[in-house]
Amino acid sequence: MAQMTMIQAITDALHCELKDDENVLVFGEDVGVNGGVFRATEGLQKEFGKDRVFDTPLAESGIGGLAIGLALQGFRPVPEIQFFGFVYEVMDSICGQLARMRYRSGGSLGAPVTIRSPFGGGVHTPEMHSDSLEGLVASQPGLKVVVPSTPYDAKGLLISSIRDNDPVVFLEHLKLYRSFREEVPEESYTIPLGKADVKREGKDISIFAYGAMVHESLKAAEALEKENYSVEVVDLRTIQPLDIETIIASVEKTGRAIVVQEAQKQAGIAANVVSEITERAILSLEAPVLRVTAPDTVYPFPQAEAVWLPNSKDIIATAKKVLEF
């Protein structure tokens, strides 16, 4: 075991897979000599060579197409999109092509591509570097979307994503890259995709969250505990497909729920979770299910970001509304 930050755990996962499977290829903008702008691929080109870890010309649609082509040649591509805000440039490759590989081949062809990309706010980036666009890809049948919140989960989930025979979009929250360390096994291990994780058990209310919002939710849970509320925090981990069983079991236990997302409120993942709960567990509910989200504007540059981003205070306030309903 070693103490690792999330970015180290990600590098470690890439390292394990490059070592274990000669078909794994890592590429993208500045991932080679530079080791990625966040150093996620630090040292990998040096160890595995330019054949397997390489810089591409600057074109996201090119990177997406390259990944599809390499997959057709039996490789297991792990391309990086430097920031997920640039996903619009590669939208056709991801949603128009990759996601449809199974459909077009009548189920006979997979596309084992894992697209890694940083996203998320709170680190003072310029425009289009912090947007939470997971909802865009989560709306496409044929894709899995994974958002880890801890170093341990990041490593296990990334290895599972790479080994999955279908396309996975793996989103890494910028603020979590170096915010804390935890014990991470040095050997390879997997965490199943599509499985949520109860990060804290409780019996009065369930908070569903993913990415950086898991930590805001845990903070909120601790504060609420002091007021004698027992709060369960469920980290969705995979937002497409959702782990309906874990979600419903939690709601059936607590009878109350809120859903937290960093993304804007409109047409989001949280709305999807709320619908699943109300469709399946309405009779267990003691109160309406509420959401905590960002407001419906584009992600602001630094100056207003602290107010714009949902935080533990917002979560506490919304949780209380539900608890005191």
Partner: peptide, 26 residues
């Protein structure tokens, strides 16, 4: 300093729809 309410205002030409009016007030 720029505020979130500035953003909501600036992104909408004319009256705010129901949801955004509510967010504006919050």
């Amino acid at each position: 300093k720029q505020k979130v309410t500035d953003l909501i205002r600036n992104m909408n030409d004319g009256d705010l729809p129901y949801n955004l009016q509510e967010q504006f007030e919050i």
